[in-house]
Amino acid sequence: MPQKNKTPTDIQIVIALVVLTCIFIMVPALSNTPIRTILGLPMVLFLPGYSLIAALFPARDDLDGIERLALSFGLSIAVVPLIGLVLNYTPWGIRLLPILISLSAFTLMMCVVAVYRRNFLPEGDEFSVPFYSAYVSIKEEILKKPDSRLDRILTILLVISILASIVTLAYVVVTPKEGEKFTEFYILGPGGMADDYPSELRLGQNGTVIIGVVNHEYADSEYSIDLILDDSSQLMDRELSQITLSHNETWEKEVTFTPGSAGDNMKLEFLLYKDNDMTKPYRELHLWIDVMEI
């Protein structure tokens, strides 16, 4: 019979980290904090592999700690791209929410399997991370009175070095080096894909596209968008085209336009202006459309 009294502390921590990561990514008030990055790194680089190793090797003697740690990183690096590859062939695609749901579901499923398999092992044979004994050992080592003043000084320097290393690592993670500053500007068809653009319209018929802007300028930026047909006809309401985006923020909007004149191979321009500088477009795209008389 399975034993009911085991407490897989490491699995509980993995589950808690998955839940916290989901909260800090999905809740708008928390999604822009550095904690999101701190939680997101192990979510991608460690937790999927660790949960898989826990499910495959539930016994203490299956692998030692160093092997589990190394394989956790290695399998995470292998599993995450495979999940992304599968998502690429689904209607959801490789986007933040599908990736988050897929990684969370995989990790939690492996945790359930790990707990199930550990419960069938004899008492004491299941793998567990000795958090408490490690804490007691470290505490006794720190609080133990050194044999000499030199030992006391070295112990203090060691603790300070460890804390400094942790702080430095956290700083590097949450404040990455500023890269190239740019703005993404794109147009999609009505179905949200880079195809099926309106290329043939009748005079007075509406055409629909999706316009997207992504700010990678490392600062808040103001944008304006114009739609111009053959350098003469402005098609987009100026009031609807004023956008303010923070760094890494995305704006997408379905825009409907109605050509006011007929013609072949008419150039429909999408002009993006930045920071109220209307003298020259910051980015520009165009489509060629045919507008036929009714």
Rank of each mutant, 00 (worst) to 15 (best):
E200G: 06
P198R: 06
S199P: 00
A194F: 15
E126I: 01
L157C: 15
P146F: 13
L158F: 13
S199T: 14
G189V: 11
G189N: 10
F127L: 06
V112T: 06
T155Q: 08
I138T: 14
K139Q: 07
V115E: 03
G124R: 01
S133H: 13
F185T: 06
Y171D: 08
Y135S: 03
L201D: 01
R152F: 15
T175C: 03
G189C: 09
V174W: 13
V159L: 06
F131A: 04
E178Q: 06
S165W: 09
Y132S: 07
I160Y: 08
I187G: 05
G192M: 05
G191D: 00
E140P: 01
E123D: 13
E140L: 15
G191H: 02
G192L: 00
I166W: 02
L154P: 00
L201A: 05
L121D: 00
F131C: 02
P190Q: 13
I160M: 04
F120V: 08
K144E: 14
P176V: 01
L163R: 06
A134N: 10
R149V: 10
D125S: 09
L150I: 10
K181T: 09
L121S: 04
I153K: 14
M110E: 05
Y171N: 09
S128W: 02
V136W: 13
Y116G: 06
R118Y: 00
V159R: 01
T175L: 05
E184S: 14
E123M: 06
D125H: 07
R152Y: 12
G189Q: 05
P198T: 08
I160W: 05
M193A: 05
D196Q: 11
R149D: 13
L188N: 04
I187M: 05
E123A: 10
D195I: 02
G179H: 03
E184N: 14
P146W: 12
D196A: 11
Y186D: 04
V167C: 06
F185R: 03
A114D: 04
S165C: 12
K144I: 11
P130S: 01
G191K: 00
P130R: 00
E184A: 14
E178M: 02
R118V: 00
K139T: 11
V129P: 05
Y197T: 07
E180V: 14
L121F: 00
D196G: 07
E123T: 10
R149K: 09
M110Q: 10
I187K: 04
S133E: 09
V115H: 04
R118C: 02
R117C: 01
S148E: 05
D151R: 09
